[in-house]
Amino acid sequence: MEVEHTLRRKWVGIVSRSHANRRSFNYFLFTLPALLLYLGFFIYPSILGVLYSLTDWDGLSKSYHFIGLDNYFAVFKDVRFGQALIFTFKYTIIAVILKIALALGLALLLNGNIKFRGFMRSVYFFPAVLSLITVGLIFNQIFYTILPKIGEQLGIEVLSKNILGDPDTAIFGLIIVNVWSGIAVPMVIFLAGLSSVPNDLHEAATIDGANSLQRFFSITLPFLIPMLNVNLVLSIKGGLTVFDSIVAMTQGGPGTATESIAYLIYAHGMNEFKFGYATAESIFIFIMIAFISFLQLKWLNKKEVGQL
């Protein structure tokens, strides 16, 4: 009797344990497709990238040599890379400030009770659904053919020159296009944040005699800090890897005036047969972006702990 009981308890234990094992094995199966894809097509190519960056490979020939860190030293000495770095930072700073400021302004204007709110939101969001390559090509045609002809007809000197044809102004052509198409998403994120600001706080502050500027800085803005962080992270990463609009509009030119780092990597790796060298450049921008994202996340966490 006693023996039988122990046996049965043991049996139940085995059954439920094998049941639990099967459960955890099934959970493991759930992760498998995603994990295999991620290891095979993200982690492995990243490791390959690091390896290639240590070689003199041109991307075509059958053999290549490991040359240690030579590519990295060469990148540091490369004037063209330095220029691309300066261009990328200049572009990022101007584009991020314009995007965030305009997106915030528009979100504030579109928030609350206004007429045609749904319609206006749809129009303002519209650029976000278009591909940047198409938008870039459209603006390219506008800058190249339409604006100069209008400038001629009206006799306006400034318009009659193609903004993309001058090394000093081409960057602003790119910024115009990216701001035109890149405001919508941060604007929607700000709108989402604005809808979380409690209305009674505003009313209480109005009763206490705060003007609209004071209300904005002491009530609205603190509620928007998380959205501001998200938008900063997204648009800084977008700015540092700017590529599509450059391919569509300037091809890095005139000369090398609008070569961003991402464009330079593409040009070196695909067209100029400096494959190993280009991967070293890509590792460089990886370190740069990882460092900047790390700083942002740290700052963001601090803000959240410190209650805005």
Partner: peptide, 14 residues
Amino acid sequence: FVPFQVIMLPILQY
């Protein structure tokens, strides 16, 4: 943390 440019050239070969 990894921008697309890091894997862009390797996946071309791969």
